[in-house]
């Protein structure tokens, strides 16, 4: 869905760090929000709505819509757009339907 800007448009190459998403190690750019990292990893679905279990992903990216709630370091319902990634962070996406991350290992 989202990709890094062309290297010719940045001054220095982007630093990558390792975080864990649903127990899988993933490499993401440093100093970006968890929501940005998940979108960079092609993950559009962050959770299911509590009412109809329909898939949801981030809408506003600025802390207003509360659609990007995920579990970060054991704390549930954190706004992924408001928290920055750091090496070793543990993220759990509670969606069971179409999360692309972690699904490959089960196959």
């Amino acid at each position: 869905m989202f990709q890094l800007i062309s290297p010719s448009l940045v001054d220095e190459p982007v630093d990558l760090i390792e975080i864990s998403i649903n127990q899988s190690q993933m490499s993401v750019p440093s100093a970006i929000s968890v929501a940005a990292a998940l979108l960079y990893l092609e993950n559009a679905v962050f959770r299911e709505s509590p009412v109809s279990q329909s898939p949801r992903g981030p809408y506003c990216m600025m802390g207003v819509c509360f659609e990007c709630l995920v579990e970060i370091d054991g704390e549930r319902n954190q706004r992924a757009c408001q928290i920055e990634v750091y090496p070793g962070m543990q993220v759990v996406i509670e969606s069971t339907t179409s999360s692309s991350i972690g699904a490959e290992e089960e196959l």
């Binding site: 989202f2 890094l4 940045v10 750019p29 970006i32 940005a36 960079y40 506003c60 990216m61 600025m62």
Partner: peptide, 14 residues
């Protein structure tokens, strides 16, 4: 705005 935030804060683009 979310698209612009992702560009400004994460240098990622759709």
């Amino acid at each position: 705005g979310a698209g612009q935030i992702l560009l400004k804060s994460a240098s990622i683009l759709p």
